[in-house]
Amino acid sequence: MNDVVIRPLRFSDDIQAMRAFLETLGLRSRIESERGGWVDMVAGRGMVALHDAATSSTGGKAGDTRLSFEADDIDELMERLLAAGYQDTNVWDEAYGRVLSVVVPGNLTIWVDERNDDLYGYKLHDAHPDSRWSVKPFLTGAEQPTCQRFLEVLGSADDVYYGPPAPEFGVRLDLQTTEDLDEVLRRLAATGYEARLDEDGLTATDPDGQIVRVHR
């Protein structure tokens, strides 16, 4: 089966600070570039990728988060998307591996990186994902039925939260956990991060100055 994993992409001015913050929450580093401009991190379900904003070739600004994915086989995924009616779909080679792009309604382009076994220029960590944690980005400005249909094709229909209508599409880096949030709050406080609890979850401010919401 072609495994497609949701992997929001965060552009940051300080990747190591963001990495430390997400590790404090419960994610684990999996792969990082030897030059330090990229780290991807795993949870029990889903991933987060961190990209140096200064070297972004697509105009990513520090604090920006984009919806993206990683897949085992992007050729098979392309066939699946075409069969579902997503005709503006392309696959090409980048220096770091193969990439699929698909334009969805609203003229939004979504990127899917193919999982790459060639780690030249990268370091692989012996990551052991914490099964209590999931990455579930919070989407604003998305037309839910349209977005849900696209995510169903990818097999990720349950991997996002939907926010209110907004003039533009936006992505917030949200997580879900079964871990005791009092313990998570203690970890964050012990390392100097600003966070607060409420009856529905935990809200923290990350090193990029963005809100991260942890849902129960």
Rank of each mutant, 00 (worst) to 15 (best):
N116K: 07
R115I: 03
D64G: 09
F69T: 11
T55N: 06
V112L: 04
T24Q: 06
D113P: 09
L108S: 08
S29M: 06
L108M: 07
E70A: 13
L67A: 08
A49H: 10
L119G: 01
G63F: 05
G85D: 02
L119Q: 08
Y120R: 13
V99N: 11
G46I: 11
S101W: 03
T24I: 08
D113A: 12
T65G: 00
T65D: 03
Y120A: 09
V103D: 08
L119A: 07
R115H: 14
D93S: 15
L67F: 01
G60E: 04
F69I: 09
D72P: 15
A43L: 07
L82D: 11
R28H: 14
T89A: 11
M41W: 02
Q87L: 11
Y120S: 10
G26L: 00
A49W: 01
R115Y: 11
R28A: 13
I110Y: 05
V103E: 11
G85T: 10
A71W: 09
L77I: 06
G121F: 01
L67I: 02
M47S: 11
G60Y: 07
L82M: 06
V103M: 10
L25A: 06
P105I: 00
Y96W: 13
A95D: 06
R66T: 10
R98G: 02
T58I: 14
A43M: 02
A53L: 04
S101D: 09
S68W: 04
D52S: 12
D73L: 07
Y86F: 12
